[in-house]
């Protein structure tokens, strides 16, 4: 494993699972700053488990996770909250929060014991509102928003947390094609413009191929990782699903149903 200095996240020989049940093992990849990386794989292969492990929500079984060259488990929860933010599949517990209130919660790691917002915090919140086209919705309650808008709010909150790594669990579920593309494009812009490292799980393989800088394929064996074009050339997507049902077309980068 070559470790460059720019690596935000370095995963080596990682095994994930619950207790004695290993869900996936031998996961290796490195992510540099400003990379948008999608994790793909069939249901139950361990995408969410991997994300939960990387987010510190559950313990790894073995291997190493380095975040900014520090082992993940060495971080205190306060320190981690400044380096890693998450967007989960679960809905916010209270939808009575306004858009601005919810995004402002992203600043908690930086505020004092009462959560008072400084000028810098307010600036960050405004930038997040602007980046995700939420300025007009700032005083709306979350229960008034559409799924697509709420997803943008949750990502904007993660952005306001100003961390080097952002993890997202299936940010495109429940969205139509337009809003799927919208949210992924916004993530791409966030990664490239603000040099954030963004890692997300998705079932939108075709969109991920077009928009991601890197893709990690969880296939239960070698977990190939790399540039989407390179993965296509090496025919890694062909083996993603049982081939009697769907087949990958390398020319168009899309899946075809076997009739």
């Amino acid at each position: 494993m070559v470790k460059t200095e720019k690596n935000i996240l370095s995963i080596a020989d990682l095994s994930i699972g619950y207790g004695s049940k290993t869900i996936a093992q031998n996961i290796n990849f490195d992510l540099e700053a400003g990379m948008l990386c999608g994790i793909v794989g069939i249901n139950g292969i361990g995408k969410s488990t991997l994300l939960r492990t990387l987010g510190g929500f559950q313990a790894k079984l073995s291997g190493t996770i380095l975040l900014n060259d520090e082992p993940l488990e060495k971080y205190t929860s306060t320190a981690l909250s400044k380096e890693l933010s998450v967007v989960l599949t679960e809905q916010p517990a209270s939808k009575n929060l306004t858009v601005q209130e919810l995004i402002a919660l992203g600043r908690q790691p930086y505020t004092n014991w009462l959560g008072t917002l400084t000028q810098e915090d307010k600036q960050q919140i405004q930038t997040s509102l602007d980046s995700f086209l939420l300025n007009d919705l700032r005083n709306n309650k979350c229960h008034e928003l559409s799924d697509g808008q709420l997803q943008r709010v949750l990502v904007a909150r993660a952005m306001a947390q100003d961390t080097s790594l952002i993890l997202l669990d299936e940010p495109t579920t429940h969205l139509d094609l337009y809003h799927k593309v919208q949210i992924l494009k916004m993530l791409q812009a966030l990664a490239h413009d603000k040099q954030k490292t963004i890692l997300f799980t998705t079932h939108e393989i075709e969109l991920a191929i077009q928009l991601c800088d890197r893709i990690l394929i969880l296939d239960g064996k070698n977990h190939p990782f790399g540039d989407p074009c390179q993965l296509i050339e090496e025919k890694h997507f062909d083996k993603l699903f049982p081939s009697e049902m769907v087949q990958f077309d390398a020319k168009t980068g899309s899946f075809k149903v076997n009739k």
Binding site: G55, G56, F57, S77, T78, L80, S81, K82, L84, S85, V86, L88, E90, Q91, P92, A93, S94, L97, L102, L105, G106, Q108, P109, T111, W113, L114, G115, Q161
Partner: peptide, 19 residues
Amino acid sequence: IKSLNAFLLGENYARSLGV
């Protein structure tokens, strides 16, 4: 107060905010 506000997002989010 601060953790109560974080709990509005749910426990997992609160945790990711350092609570």
